[in-house]
């Protein structure tokens, strides 16, 4: 009940934040120089032509009217039409969200699979050989530029070994999943390195703490001490970190999407900013603001499961 109340309260708090986001993004998009009509027409934009295209895009209306239209559409869950593609933004987004979500989930699985065991192992074997190896590899992984790692992966696993396609998204779920392995791995590597370092330090700290000594002196089995006391406590800040990173990944991994030719949200977003496709940018930012807020909420709630001392209020 207490948890339900908390979730409800937090959900309601999201609304004013999102409202503020709509104002912010609307104003910011219009503050940057250049408008979609002039970008679309490029060098051929005679003054008269520019006016005609702006009128067609509805950009001749006062800003306040444009904002109110945006807000009214939003309330009926309609993001309007893309200025450039003319099709509804929701239609553009729907497919790309699937790509980005699947990529993020797969990357998150890779992160967990790679970093949890290695981080724990490094912490338990502090300053011994496994720890040294893991720490050094993590440092290397962290400092490698993503686009370069991506190209290397494509060269080896795509071109030479032919295990995975050289970029693209494929046409059915089999191909989708297969084409996501390399990008998800590339995306996961840097985050994994970060998490390994974090988890290792946590494990080292927690293992030295009094309550772990106490648990042992109570005569608890070593496996119980590890799983219930060390791992659980060490994971708290690591999970926060993971959630933050997932939020970031959802925002679109532009470099990954570009290198692996994935039609994800990140590349749509960047392209829309460049072409000043206001309605798409507004929709994407709004959606991600909502997503990040929800992920944060989930993270906060999950603390209470990891650590019963955390009170939700």
């Amino acid at each position: 009940m207490e948890q339900l109340n908390y979730i409800l309260k937090r959900t309601l708090q999201i609304i004013p934040v999102l409202f503020f986001v709509t104002i912010l993004i609307f104003v910011m998009m219009r503050l940057i120089p250049g408008d979609p009509a002039s970008v679309m027409l490029g060098d051929k934009a005679t003054p008269e032509l520019l006016k005609q295209v702006q009128a067609r895009m509805g950009l001749d209306k006062p800003y306040l009217v444009q904002y109110l239209i945006f807000l009214r559409n939003l309330l009926s869950f309609d993001f309007g039409n893309s200025l450039l593609y003319v099709v509804p933004v929701s239609q553009l987004l729907a497919k790309r969200i699937v790509v980005t979500l699947t990529l993020t989930i797969m990357a998150a699985i890779f992160v967990i699979v790679i970093s949890f065991p290695l981080g724990y192992l490094a912490g338990r074997k502090k300053d011994r050989l496994p720890d040294q190896i893991i720490r050094t590899s993590a440092l290397v992984a962290l400092s490698m530029p993503q686009f370069w790692l991506g190209i290397l992966c494509l060269l080896l696993f795509g071109l030479k070994l032919r295990w995975f396609p050289v970029g693209g998204w494929g046409s059915d779920w089999g191909e989708h999943l297969r084409s996501l392995v390399l990008p998800a791995f590339t995306e996961a590597l840097a985050t994994s390195a970060l998490m390994i370092r974090n988890l290792r330090n946590n494990v080292v700290d927690v293992a030295r703490s009094d309550y772990v000594d106490f648990a042992r002196s109570k005569g608890l089995k070593e496996s119980v001490v590890r799983s219930r006391h060390i791992v659980r406590n060490a994971l708290i800040s690591t999970v926060t970190l993971l959630a933050l990173r997932i939020g970031g990944m959802l925002g679109g991994a532009v470099i990954i999407e570009t290198v692996f030719a994935l039609p994800g949200v990140g590349s749509l977003m960047v392209q829309s900013v460049f072409s000043r496709d206001y309605s798409v940018v507004q929709a994407v930012v709004f959606m991600f603001a909502s997503l990040v807020l929800v992920v944060n909420l989930i993270t906060d709630v999950s603390y209470s499961f990891l650590d019963p001392r955390v009170k939700l209020e």
């Binding site: 686009f147 190209i151 494509l154 060269l155 795509g158 071109l159 050289v166 970029g167 693209g168 570009t258 290198v259 692996f260 030719a261």
Partner: peptide, 8 residues
Amino acid sequence: DDNTRMLQ
């Protein structure tokens, strides 16, 4: 991406 396009 130019590199990826050429790799393909």
